[in-house]
């Protein structure tokens, strides 16, 4: 850790990456068909994306979210195909 002994916290940040509305989701559509074959005929949409959990140390929650937002824009999501949302799942003080 780069700032040991400071009041940094450890955050678990969840990045959810999903297809944009206009982008075909063949996997989601196939699962939807399988669900309807099982009798779940009220399911109107199934969308398959990715959940990426990032553990990161930061001074506060805002900084943790900003860092993960930057890395998501650079690497974790492709802006042509995907949207994303970011949320903090957990935070723990450094021991």
């Amino acid at each position: 850790m780069d700032k040991q002994g400071s009041d940094r916290h450890l955050y678990e940040v969840l990045v959810e990456v999903r297809h944009k509305e206009k982008i075909a989701d063949p996997e989601g559509n196939t699962i939807k068909k399988a669900l309807s074959a099982l009798g779940y005929d009220r399911v109107s949409r199934v969308s398959v994306g990715k959940a990426i959990r990032v553990q990161i140390s930061a001074d506060n929650e805002t900084e943790a979210l900003n860092q993960v937002d930057k890395m998501t824009q650079r690497l974790l999501a492709n802006p042509v195909l995907e949207n994303y949302s970011i949320s903090v799942e957990e935070s723990n003080s450094h021991a």
């Binding site: 982008i23 075909a24 063949p26 996997e27 196939t30 492709n78 042509v80 195909l81």
Partner: peptide, 17 residues
């Protein structure tokens, strides 16, 4: 090349999966 931004657009999964 599309991921690197040297070409526009992206390649997504084949429509028939």
């Amino acid at each position: 090349l599309t991921e690197a931004g040297l070409l526009p657009g992206a390649l997504q999964k084949n429509s028939n999966l």
